[in-house]
Amino acid sequence: MRPQPFPWGRAMAFGLGVLRLSPHDFWSMTPLELACAAEGFYGRATIAPSRDALVELMRTFPDGEQK
């Protein structure tokens, strides 16, 4: 899987449009600071799969001998 480029358009839309930051304040932030602001606004994103999803993945793709 290729790394995706940073979504600057979305970040700018959020920082300048939603948070109404000045351009100076927006460009003074680090991506981590902007991510924390987004988390505070939208809530924490669920990154890890649920236990049920993990069990299903383990059932579908069991560990075992490689051919």
Rank of each mutant, 00 (worst) to 15 (best):
Q4E: 09
F61E: 09
L34I: 06
F61V: 07
Y42A: 12
A13D: 13
M29P: 01
L54M: 11
G15Y: 08
A13G: 10
L54Y: 06
M1S: 13
D25E: 15
A45P: 02
F14Q: 02
A38E: 14
A48V: 09
F26Q: 06
W8C: 00
G17K: 10
A37G: 06
F26K: 11
P49Y: 01
G40M: 03
A11D: 08
F26Y: 15
P62W: 05
P62K: 05
S50P: 05
C36H: 14
L16M: 11
T60R: 07
P49N: 13
M12G: 07
G17E: 10
S50R: 02
A38C: 07
A11T: 06
D52A: 08
T46N: 06
P3L: 12
Q66A: 07
P7K: 05
R20V: 08
F6Q: 10
E39H: 03
M12C: 10
F14R: 00
L19I: 02
G15F: 01
F26A: 11
Q66N: 09
L16R: 11
L57N: 12
M1H: 08
M1N: 04
L32T: 06
P49Q: 09
F6D: 08
V18N: 02
A13N: 13
H24Y: 05
G64L: 12
G40K: 07
T60D: 12
G17Y: 12
A53W: 01
